[in-house]
Design a protein around this nucleic acid. Structure first.
Lengths: 193, 193, 193, 193
DNA sequence: CATGAATGAGCCTTCATTCAT
DNA sequence: CATGAATGAAGGCTCATTCAT
């Protein structure tokens, strides 16, 4: 009754939350399981009851996002490669990025630390897949760069605008509009020929 | 007495080369001084003759780039804030990025690992300074995003296009043109008012 | 009410079987309770329902054999110290060894790991007791070695001949005959004087 | 001047000595590197300067003995398979065993703990090779057991007689004589046919 | 210039064990 | 009977760093 000895059911989720928190604060390699355990006020061994290794924590953290993007890619592949599809793809990508924002930031900032693991390898593949879906393969370099630029705008802009003034909706709309202008331009030049 | 004995092409530089190589291959935190020493076929202690700490190696690696960018920022600040200045700023930024390409990649991929160190803190500051120099502070969100997008295009495009087909010159030109279009648009909307 | 429900052939015995199996495969110290539980498809905690500690499992495993040998020793002590008694002692020892063969092998291969535990201390005592029963204390070194050799022949031969060709009966008979020849020789020299 | 800070040259050998000492006292698995380091009054990390892993310590410990036995086996193979050769083989084996007595005891008592390592696999092979060299392959089971028994006598007797009264020379002579009688018997029966 | 030897801190991981349910 | 969750202790190992030579 004195101590909060509640056998919490959601320890697993709490571990993930705190881990992400610390990974963002101090970086993956510099975050030890001891620190995670301490902030949770459990022992290191408790973490190992829920996750077999430190990497497993990362996997659980980034797992959802992978599926989310794969769905997105699958959806885009099933659509006709029209300008409209591409606009919608960027919109959905922005949506996904905002939903998983902290995890994306974690992946972004810890690329090197996670190299060799399962996650990031496919992360790069996914970025590439998205790039391909936004570009016509036979289009000139200039248009391919425009498409790439649109992707960057949505991808990095989602994080970079967080410090910018303005309402989230306003910024989001601006991001999408700019990205759209870029694929519009890529498309126009190419199909107008 | 004039020149150093150049026994093996300057050990200090060889250390930096190998360190960067390994930092890019395996990440900063996952690269131990032992590995660097082994690849160089010297002892760990030898590294300590040339650098006081592991961080000192990073500092030496990213030192030049910092000055380079600071010069760039200083130059831009000394210019009138015209469209032409901004175009030239992007051009020079692209030049700097290509010159220091591997170091930039290292900084990019190891953000989290280097957090808290001297380098990256100012790195973020510099990115921000560049962003500010490309935007008019009182311009609407949409234009600020356009400028940001121009910066991303040059910044990330320099790395991302390395796998793309086309000659380096061609890709470089395309990158700059796309970035220019974006600040042009930002500028036009704003000044046309 | 009479018989236990024998739900799955007596869990306690299954634990012992699997434990012995694993102790032989991987060694006592290298076998964790987790492994035992996993192979049994129960939880670790279930083991603790049946055995208070890991050592208790060992004790249950080697318990029977201890009593068996103690009986053997008690029997031999109650007999006159004749050649015939010694022959019969070796025969019964061989019988016991074959009956408990895997447990003996376990004890044999894990002597060091079990040191300090209850079992093996007395195991050594028993070996010594057997040695004493096969030798006349005042006999010359040579004859004492002969008796020791007879003991080794039965003791280690039981395991060592398992890979040898021939029927078990044949090998067993050979083992005993050789051991007998040795105590015969020890006896003859001594009593013939 | 106060503390014995002498940078001792022979730390590597001291590690091996203390390791063997502790492995014999408490068993391989139950001896931690911390304990070895403490008894040596150095840090654990110092051990790792001299040996890459705990297993490497074992390898260094049992390395010499392997070569010793391989030489012995090679020598025996180069001789004619006469009774005289076999006698001499047993004599030399006894010599080797006494020379490396503690290491043999360590291998003997920690068989299970060392399973899967390099050492013991070949240890078993060597025992078998010695067994083969002492027996004629086509001889009857009884004679093969006699040869095996001779091997046991020398092999285990070397350790088992350490507690027995009598001078070392006396015991050694007795051991060899008993072993010889056994191969003599094996040989006589076989060649007398 | 450079090395061999060593340290102190810390890391990830595993283990035997406990206990409320 | 049995489990899910957790603990405390310890283990093997690696790392950045130091220093006498």
């Amino acid at each position: 009754m004195g101590k909060p000895q509640t056998r919490r059911k959601d320890t697993r989720q709490r571990i993930l939350d705190v881990a992400l928190e610390l990974f963002l604060e101090r970086g993956y390699d510099q975050t030890s399981l001891r620190e995670i355990a301490e902030r949770l006020e459990v022992t290191k061994a408790a973490l190992y009851y829920h996750f077999r290794t430190k990497e497993d924590i990362v996997d659980a953290l980034v797992g959802g996002i992978g599926e989310r993007l794969d769905e997105l890619i699958a959806w885009a592949r099933a659509q006709p490669t029209t300008l409209e599809t591409r606009r919608e793809l960027l919109r959905r990508l922005n949506e996904a990025l905002e939903e998983y924002s902290p995890v994306f930031q974690f992946l972004q900032e810890n690329q090197a630390a996670l190299r060799g693991r399962a996650g990031p390898k496919t992360a790069r593949d996914r970025m590439q897949a998205l790039g391909t879906l936004l570009t016509d393969p036979q289009s000139p370099v200039l248009d391919r760069v425009r498409s790439l630029s649109a992707l960057f705008t949505v991808y990095f802009g989602t994080f970079a605008t967080s410090a910018m003034e303005g309402t989230p909706e306003e910024k989001r709309a601006a991001l999408l509009q700019v990205a759209w202008e870029q694929i519009d331009a890529a498309h126009a030049a190419h199909s107008g020929k």
